[in-house]
Simulated assay, not measured.
Amino acid sequence: MQIYKTFLAGLIAAFVLVLGTAAAPALAATPAEQYITDNVQKGMGILNNTQLSKDQRKTEFQGFLLSLTDISAIGRYTLGQYRRTASPEDLTAFEAAFKDYALAVYQSYFAKYSGQSLKVTGSTPLSADETVVKSVTVDPKKPSAKPFEVQFRVQNNGGKMVVVDFSVEGVWIRELERNDFTSYLGQHNGDVKALTAMLKQKAAQTK
């Protein structure tokens, strides 16, 4: 599933760049921008804490990812129209598999993108409760390389902010994932159990 592999690469690049780098707090002019900036610093603290064992760092990092993103909502969204026809039991199993898979992939890839710098450049409100935070990334090891844009879709859910989507160079990852999953389901008679089994298998392989 080439589109799926492309999605993973883009997602991890975008996600880890914001977690593994520092941004200037002074740039955060809105609550959503401040939220992204603060979490950059928090992610850095976990990843660079040498007093933690590997397992402790993994556990704390997973907890951090779960607090930053609404993985359950993202997972439900990726099912598209097939969510309406899936049983409650199948949906519950899928969400659990999706969460485990996403966390396994983040853990596997985050180290590959450490050392990048990220700069919050502004934000665009989509509604009273949703904002797109814009940023650019630069590799300090390659100062001549062209920076690319990463955007974060931040929702304010009753005072709690969460990231619900990412884009790399204008391509929104959640949409790519839904296209890939619904394509898979279309080829497997809408069998959410089959998709869940596939995610479990890939999570195990990644771990």
Results as ranks from 00 to 15, higher is better:
residue 123 S to I: 06
residue 1 M to H: 12
residue 74 I to S: 00
residue 145 A to R: 10
residue 174 R to K: 14
residue 161 M to V: 01
residue 98 F to D: 08
residue 175 E to I: 06
residue 169 E to H: 04
residue 177 E to R: 12
residue 113 Y to H: 13
residue 39 N to G: 07
residue 135 S to D: 05
residue 156 N to S: 03
residue 181 F to C: 00
residue 161 M to R: 08
residue 137 T to D: 02
residue 195 L to S: 08
residue 47 L to E: 12
residue 29 A to P: 05
residue 156 N to K: 04
residue 21 T to R: 05
residue 85 T to D: 08
residue 122 G to W: 04
residue 45 G to N: 14
residue 80 G to H: 11
residue 126 L to W: 11
residue 87 S to W: 01
residue 203 A to H: 09
residue 131 T to K: 01
residue 167 S to A: 10
residue 34 Q to R: 15
residue 85 T to N: 09
residue 110 F to G: 00
residue 77 Y to C: 03
residue 147 P to A: 10
residue 103 L to G: 09
residue 39 N to S: 00
residue 1 M to P: 04
residue 37 T to D: 03
residue 25 P to F: 10
residue 197 A to E: 09
residue 132 V to K: 00
residue 50 T to E: 11
residue 146 K to F: 02
residue 26 A to S: 15
residue 105 V to W: 06
residue 136 V to H: 06
residue 87 S to Y: 10
residue 23 A to K: 03
residue 134 K to I: 02
residue 35 Y to C: 01
residue 62 Q to A: 10
residue 129 D to V: 14
residue 100 D to C: 02
residue 3 I to G: 02
residue 84 R to K: 15
residue 142 K to S: 09
residue 147 P to G: 09
residue 82 Y to V: 00
residue 178 R to V: 03
residue 189 N to H: 14
residue 16 V to T: 13
residue 113 Y to R: 09
residue 99 K to N: 13
residue 90 D to C: 05
residue 139 D to V: 07
residue 101 Y to H: 13
residue 11 L to V: 08
residue 90 D to F: 04
residue 11 L to K: 04
residue 178 R to A: 01
residue 88 P to W: 12
residue 206 T to M: 12
residue 182 T to V: 08
residue 152 F to E: 01
residue 172 W to I: 00
residue 153 R to A: 00
residue 177 E to H: 12
residue 109 Y to H: 05
residue 30 T to G: 05
residue 17 L to T: 15
residue 19 L to H: 13
residue 62 Q to D: 10
residue 95 E to K: 06
residue 139 D to Y: 10
residue 30 T to A: 12
residue 44 M to S: 04
residue 24 A to T: 11
residue 38 D to M: 01
residue 195 L to E: 11
residue 48 N to T: 14
